[in-house]
Amino acid sequence: MADQSQAVPVVPARAGIGALLRSMLRSQAAMTTATLLVLMAFFTVLFPSKFLTVFNIQNLLIDYSGIVLLGVGLTFVMTSECFDLSIGATLVLASVLGVEAMVLVGGEGWSTVLVGLAATLLTGAAVGVFNGFLVVNLRIPSIIVTLGSLNVAQGLAYVLTGGQDMHEIPNLMVDSIGLGRVLGIPAPVLVSGIAVIVGAFVLSQTRFGRHTCALGSNKEAARRAGIDVNRLSIQLYVLSGMCAGLAGFMSLARFGTTTLSGHSTDFITALLGVVLGGTSLFGGVGTVLGTAVGVFIPGVLSNGLILMSVFPYWQLVIVGLVLCAVVYADLVKRRQRDD
């Protein structure tokens, strides 16, 4: 022990981009990727001419681009050992207020679209501030706070619209964003892809991401290290809310309407993607890239079940069961580690 000459042996692999790749290779993200590939192989064999086609895969990517956006924000919040059940409802409320704002300013041009974008993002941020304030200042458990705000947001969306979907969306927005392409990539996929890359960078490579992990791992340690844990928590809820806001904007652009009742299962799908991707339900560990892969497991499953002509609602049953199984696996892993 007192041997002064002996150096601390160090595993040569460094952090940075290398660590990013390593963390992808080990652990759950690798398993999830493998599972996804197996699922895809399975459906490819079953439906050689239908499943693995550019058309089908592209539709799958577009269909789940919104869930990916929700998943990015949810990954951050869950890494800090909090919950955000409200994201699906925030998406709906943001899209309603987005349309209201665009109707208010009128017009069909890009400026109107930008107003709509600003309104959806602001709505998301506002719900985030509300969630964060209640969790941080009133110390209400986040699961209850966001269950509350879920209903507040969904209820407000119905109140504002009288329960009727709104369609007053500039054609420009639908044509160039919802159905648009950049270099052949569908715009919704591009937006989600950028969000994933930025989110992955921030969570794994920056001080903000490091502090988020520390907060979820040991709040007291984070506090003693001088991190303003209350401010950080609120920032994370705002981030999650704004991701939902952006998803609301993209949803408007794709469907040309507020889809008031179309997002009730978005949260559970995003949550399954997040935990499948390797983000722990118990905080401290999170990976945005894992989430981006994880989200497509329920995606491929649902797509495949439809091809198999299985009644599509079976997907919900499977999602619920898989969620429990994945969280159980995470629990077992933690118990083993702590022993």
């Binding site: 490091r210 502090h211 992990c213 520390a214 979820g216 791992s217 984070a222 290290a225 722990s280 401290g284």
Partner: peptide, 13 residues
């Protein structure tokens, strides 16, 4: 912080 490595803990904050 249990989930962070030694370096991350030593420089936390």
């Amino acid at each position: 912080a249990d989930n962070l490595d030694v370096v991350a803990n030593m420089f936390l904050g």
